[in-house]
Design a protein around this nucleic acid. Structure first.
Lengths: 108, 108
DNA sequence: TAGTGGTACTCGGTAGCACGGAGTACCGGA
DNA sequence: TCCGGTACTCCGTGCTACCGAGTACCACTA
């Protein structure tokens, strides 16, 4: 599936929040996870910009730890604000996706 | 539901395509339809920019007709390219929405 | 020991999209 | 004659994903 970038606007950040919410993890691993999930074209640069934004907006807790197989990793975990943001993301997603499915089925 | 604008990026255009695909219609009516559907904050300016883009990209056929209750209306209908675009939109939507639902359910 | 490849993060710039606001214009009714 | 509803246009803004180049750590190997 090619060129999903416009459709991912506004949802990719939520996906990253969800992944971080599941377990404390770092940028490179998040990128791999998204690629496995089917978002094959998401590259590291994109994920890092999202992570820096989350950090700037105070939604995550950050801890730098040595890796053993490369440069140190920055591990991200959700804080309370991040969990709230994740909840509103899923609420918005449910709202939007149900309306769009309604539209596809010709409903009103 | 407030501030869905980021999540609508890339999908709102598809919604407009779907509405036009259902029946020949015009900008003001499309806005009302979207508002009824639940996208209450979508305003006319947004819909008109999408319609001009569709026209510029050669996805629609346009016909101006007098209204009787106001200025003349520009009626939009999908052409073959528009129908193809609509089909790829739904394919992308199915792809993205299923992956995101998978993510929410903690799947891999 | 120099080189390669995988891991890991940073930064500056770009393009696309939804949105806001101001402006224009047509029409009917108070 | 003004007001409100209908209907479209245009210009600028902010947010987002993306791209590319750069830096740097580590293990393995020729």
């Amino acid at each position: 599936m090619e060129d999903l970038t416009e459709m991912l606007k506004g949802t990719l950040e939520g996906c990253v929040l969800e992944i971080i919410g599941g377990e404390e993890t770092y940028g490179y691993a998040i990128t791999r996870r998204l690629n496995e999930l089917g978002f094959t074209d998401v590259v590291e640069g994109t994920v890092y910009t999202i992570l820096l934004r989350l950090e700037k907006n105070g939604l995550v807790h950050v801890a730098k730890r040595p890796s053993g197989v490369g440069p140190p990793r920055k591990f991200y975990a959700l804080n309370d604000a991040g969990r709230r943001e994740l909840a509103t993301f899923w609420a918005k997603w449910a709202y939007v996706s149900t309306r769009i499915d309604t539209l596809r089925e010709g409903g009103r």
